[in-house]
Amino acid sequence: MVIKVENLVKRYGDLIALDHFNMELHEGEVLGLLGPNGSGKTTAINCILSLLKYDKGNIEIFGKPMSPDAYDIKRDIGIIMQNVAVFEELTVYENTDYFCGLYVTDKKKRRALVDEAIEFVGLKDFKKFYPKKLSGGLLRRLNIACGIAHKPKLIILDEPTVAVDPQSRNNILEGILRLNKEGASIVYTSHYMEEVEQICSRIIIMDKGKTIAAGTKDELKSMIKAVEKVTVEVYQPNEGVLTGIRSLNNVISAEFDGEMLVVKCGKGSHNLMMILEHLKANDILFGKVYSEPPTLNDVFLEITGKELRD
């Protein structure tokens, strides 16, 4: 077990930020912590890193209790903060070397590690650049280089793609998967469900400081009734259409989103055909048609009754 968190409670006055939160990270896993802003993801990470005091609970990393002076544990952890944590006065190389030097004292070894990290994040041509000369995406990559240069066994990434362009985002996600392939266990927090679905082998969905669901993405999706979402463009949407659709077998819900009829269907086959035949039979004109499996947002929506991005 890489991380084991049991019954973690953290209060800010009357506000409960973590409410008996539990978490396990197994070796070689990419664990996603998914939840809306304010759900307690970053607080959980800060408690795990022993940066924040907590009111109750146990945290173990690599089988040992975590504490601020557990230097042997900290040596194998890499942290990539939500905010870019680099010094404006140091170049790309110097920043990476500075933070790597907090873990690795051997200069020769460190030089090789720093070069490798800079190459890994694709900043080889920017070694002598100061952070203010870098774009947002490159800055995020530097932030990652500073966190992984010492080759940690456990890497914690706290929303590393916030405010990053799609190209840099893909680059970062690919990099995380490469780090995982190289042997690092990873905790990845985000409120972007697509990212979490893309790279995480297991996911914990959080809300109000609690774990509301945990498992692989397929396990999570199988927890909900709706297994298919059918979207149809209807030219004359009205309440009658909805009433008709809702009366069909296997239909869990039907709503209009503008001219788009969104129908959620339960387990069963030919849901799409059934809906289209009903529309034809009732002379309802329709255009584009989509069918898709449920997303993590649907999982979140069904469990909490609200959108993940609220």
């Binding site: 890193l49 940066l51 002076d69 230097y71 042997d72 900290k74």
Partner: peptide, 9 residues
């Protein structure tokens, strides 16, 4: 925070 998370006294 990054310095505090490192194994540095």
């Amino acid at each position: 925070a990054r310095v505090c998370a490192a194994p540095t006294q």
